[in-house]
Amino acid sequence: MRPQPPPSLTEDIVLLLIPCPYCGPRAEIEFRYGGEAHLERPKPDCNEQTWAAYLHSRHNARGRHAERWRHAHGCGQFFNAVRDTLTDQIEVTYEAGQPSPLREPAS
């Protein structure tokens, strides 16, 4: 079994290898990006600011970023990933509904 490739870097030839929690590592072309993860959908009785923030405000993290991916041309499942937006390294992937690892320091 091949070891996981170590950290990668954004350059001109970009095709991430994304470890789907259900299917294993697959090429990026099989996935669709799903935006920032762990967004709490407010109830309809929330105020304007809360709703506007949910619609339009994102962390835009420099560095470790929790985000969603969907294995569109595979199992079709959504899952989460922590990716470093500077190096494009995917640190970990985990199932939707699991808590964000961002509170822990990078291993």
Partner: peptide, 10 residues
């Protein structure tokens, strides 16, 4: 002619 992320090479 190109080497990128995850040792993806063209």
């Amino acid at each position: 002619f190109g080497a990128g992320i995850g040792n993806f090479v063209a």
